[in-house]
Design a protein around this nucleic acid. Structure first.
Lengths: 196, 196
DNA sequence: CTGCTAACTTTGCAATGCATAGATTCGAGG
DNA sequence: CCTCGAATCTATGCATTGCAAAGTTAGCAG
């Protein structure tokens, strides 16, 4: 789908790349479309041809994020064949992704209303979630659909919650000194695997 | 601390009240300071006397939010003397607050850098968290400090994670049909109390 | 009554998102 | 090769917004 260079190269991808770069260096502020355009040497309204609104650009960024997150989860899952450790490995991969892409991760879960509108975003988000759910489904003995869904949701809740709290730096030093992804993953694993 | 009316009434509180109202009706967009001022019949830069920056206003709003959340948690705790049900009641109170104050809740956990700077915000946020931690600490048998902190953090992670996912409407219908706070609280309680 | 201070207004500026109209360039069909 | 259409990009303009600086008004202490 990657169109080859027209006037100024593949502006669409270039915009997304640069936006991600900006987000990495300033995770708290959403990147300015005009600034992106200026740094790419195009006019201020050039992005308008590829993304009708700024929200569309951010949504496209979020889609990329979920694709990468899903890939990271799959990688973690396939490199840990043992179901005992698989869940913790998955949690760790999730937490690592969130900590290494704070701005992007925040964006992925804050697109707000756009989420309902964009089918693509829903699809990739769902795909990432399904990796987690399938792992949960297999790691524990026979479960009803409802049971499995509830467990998967609970597990997702824990990792997402801890990832968010860590990303927003809401966990203070006297609450938990070791806030590394691996330690948070350990806590997650212990909690989720509790009633095994 | 409430200064009585000067020129135009208690503008500071009026701004916060109206901002919260705006946030309730448009949870996705942060309120515009100029619009708030206009609706209150003051000049566009009048708020500047009370909040040097917009971020300061939002931080003050977040402080209010944490105060109300903490109060809600305390209320829930004291109305359920039984330690068995106390934790679930706490989780439900938390989830109810988040669902009834989506915009405010989002704000409370997205102030970003401001959090480090504002001691007041840190204090009230910590106070709300301590209610949860103390309940966890008492509900389970003797625990080391580290154990208790880890459990409290995990519990906070679950409720915060589920509250966030629900607030952003990221839980689809085929994942969990019943997304009411009480059902989510039930799931939370079962998970956290797992290794009792 | 005088002066001081907090609250508020006026004015102005820069950044930003977005719409519209026009120019440029690529590529396909003749 | 040439023409034309469509995609891409530019130019211009506008409205909203946050913010700063200087002046104005109102309450209050002495």
């Amino acid at each position: 789908m990657e169109k080859t260079a027209y006037h100024h190269g593949d502006l669409r991808s270039a915009l997304l790349d640069l936006a991600e770069e900006h987000l990495r260096q300033a995770p708290d502020a959403p990147p300015s479309v005009r600034t992106l355009a200026a740094e790419l040497g195009v006019s201020a309204t050039a992005p308008h041809a590829h993304f009708r609104t700024k929200s569309d650009l951010l949504t496209a960024l979020a889609v990329r994020g979920f694709e990468r997150l899903g890939a990271a989860l799959l990688r973690a899952k396939s490199s840990h064949p043992d179901p005992e450790t698989q869940l913790t490995a998955l949690a760790e991969a999730y937490l690592v992704f969130a900590s290494e892409n704070v701005g992007l991760y925040r964006l992925m879960f804050s697109t707000g209303t756009t989420y309902d509108a964009d089918a693509e975003l829903r699809r990739v988000s769902r795909a990432a979630y399904d990796v987690l759910r399938d792992t949960i489904g297999r790691s524990v003995a026979p479960l009803s659909d409802l049971e499995r869904n509830e467990r998967a949701l609970a597990a997702w809740g824990v990792v997402h919650g801890l990832a968010s709290l860590a990303a927003e730096e809401r966990i203070s030093d006297d609450t938990l000194a070791d806030r590394t992804p691996s330690n948070l993953a350990r806590i997650t694993g212990r909690l989720v695997a509790g009633s095994r």
